[in-house]
Simulated assay, not measured.
Amino acid sequence: MNALFPDLVVNGETVPSARIAAETQNHDGPQGKPGVAWRKAANALAVRTLLLQEARKRGIDARVQEVGPGQFETEEEALVRGLLEQAVRVARPTDAAVRAEWERDPLRFRSPPLWEVSHILVACDPRDAEARDAAQARATDLTGQALGNPKGFPALAASASDCGSKSSGGSLGQLSPGDTVPEFEAVLRGLTDGAITAEPVLTRHGWHIIKMDALAEGAVLPFASVRDKIADAMEKTSWAKAAKSFVETLAADAEITGADLRTPVRYAQVP
């Protein structure tokens, strides 16, 4: 035990430091301040330990379930799930509550957009710093040419792109959410009709100059078609709040050292 990495003890049960150290990989923190990730990991394991203690106290008997193809819960995960299924229950939101949520801003509920896109790719391996920088310089020059002559984008793509779409002037056709890598799609969501990216966009494939040839915003969906989706989201939010309250109740009655479940970790609190 030391001031930076104190022992974690929950109701007399000591959590091994090795387990906290392993958990830190799941938590971020500023460079040079390892105590931040450690404190977050300790808090997470304190919660997990409280839940496991409560599950055993209640005699929870939960069978391990498959959570994905060939992937199964651990016994501890099954116990926590079984406890929460028993202890945390929320009512399905009423139709009136769901409609009120929809009426608050119907524009939030749209069908997926449709993007007609062209691009110029300057291929590189982003992990190779030298190649990445060289490709960025070339992509920056091509961006300037594209912005200076938007109508010439197809010809520029045909002569300069490293993508097979160069044969069709850089056209990728019509795209919907999920059709491209996330970093490319994130840019599409911010482009207006006819716009060209002001700076090259880096993805796992290299640098892109992207042109939005046409944009079709998704239509606002009627209440009947989104009612169940809204209800599911509202129920999930209510369940999360109830689960948080349940954990807070357990923590209030527990004796815990080496973690603080009352307040969020602040960088300034940890050396």
Rank of each mutant, 00 (worst) to 15 (best):
F246K: 04
K33T: 11
G206M: 04
M212L: 13
L107M: 00
V98E: 00
A198E: 15
A123L: 08
D162A: 02
A195S: 14
Q86I: 06
A198Q: 13
S238D: 15
A134L: 10
P154I: 10
D260L: 01
A158F: 04
V187S: 02
P264M: 02
G68C: 06
A62H: 07
E75Y: 00
A3C: 01
G35A: 00
A186C: 04
V201P: 07
R89M: 00
V47G: 15
S225V: 14
V265C: 12
A214W: 07
G152C: 11
H208R: 07
Q65E: 15
L215M: 03
A139H: 07
A219P: 04
V80I: 15
A198I: 08
V90D: 10
R19Y: 02
A100D: 10
D162N: 01
T74I: 02
A219E: 13
G206C: 02
V98K: 00
R99S: 03
L202T: 07
H205I: 00
A139F: 09
L188F: 09
E54I: 03
G152Y: 00
A198H: 00
A91T: 08
R110M: 04
F246L: 08
G68N: 11
A219Q: 13
V98T: 03
C124R: 07
I209F: 01
G70V: 05
L84S: 07
I196G: 07
S168M: 03
W38P: 02
M234N: 03
M212E: 05
P16D: 00
V64P: 10
T49E: 06
E248Y: 06
I20W: 13
P222K: 04
D125E: 09
A268Q: 14
D125V: 08
F246P: 01
R127T: 12
V47F: 07
Q25N: 06
L175A: 04
T143C: 07
S245F: 08
L221M: 15
T237R: 14
E130W: 12
L121Y: 11
A129D: 15
Q269N: 14
H205M: 11
V10H: 00
D125F: 06
K33P: 05
R19C: 00
F72V: 09
D133L: 14
G59P: 04
C163G: 12
L172R: 05
A100C: 11
A41Q: 09
A44T: 12
P113I: 02
L202C: 11
S159F: 02
Q31A: 14
A87V: 03
E248C: 00
L250M: 08
G258K: 03
E235W: 00
T263F: 11
K211R: 14
R110N: 09
Q25C: 06
L4F: 10
K244S: 12
Q269A: 08
V80F: 08
A146H: 01
I230T: 05
L51M: 12
K236A: 15
I60R: 05
W239I: 09
E116R: 14
M234E: 03
A158M: 02
A41D: 07
A3E: 13
S225H: 05
L45A: 04
P30D: 07
A240E: 10
R99H: 09
Q86R: 15
A251P: 07
G59W: 05
A44R: 13
I60W: 10
A268M: 12
M234V: 03
A91S: 05
L4G: 13
R89Q: 11
V98L: 02
K33A: 13
Q31H: 12
G218R: 10
T140S: 02
A158V: 03
E255A: 11
K33V: 08
L52K: 10
G169Y: 06
